[in-house]
């Protein structure tokens, strides 16, 4: 099982547009990916409602876990995504 922790860079936290971008990216990997606060219950990273209900704010740390082939690479790309200020872009 692959695992990463990352700090949310989006200035408005992981909601609305950043959440939608993250969920779309998670869906594209085709893997079972979960996201949650370290040490707490995780939610399905491909569920927009789950991710938004997590309510992760700017500067908060979240843990990502994934299983299956290519899990490491998939998490690396998701970590890179969350490390950017998605709200400030286009």
């Amino acid at each position: 099982m692959a695992q990463r922790t990352v700090t949310i860079a989006s200035s408005v936290g992981l909601h609305a547009r950043p959440a939608a971008l993250f969920v779309e990216a998670a869906q594209e990997t085709g893997l079972d990916i979960e996201i949650g606060r370290p040490g707490e219950d995780a939610v399905d990273a491909t569920s927009i409602l789950g991710v938004m209900a997590l309510g992760a704010k700017h500067g908060e740390e979240v843990a990502l876990t994934a299983e299956g082939d290519g899990a490491e690479a998939a998490l690396d790309s998701l970590v890179a995504l969350l490390s950017r200020d998605l709200d400030a872009e286009g």
Binding site: R17, S47, I48
Partner: peptide
């Protein structure tokens, strides 16, 4: 609209 479509497609919902 795309984000709203994601909600409609949400597995948890």
């Amino acid at each position: 609209l795309k984000a709203t479509a994601l909600i409609a497609r949400d597995k948890q919902l």
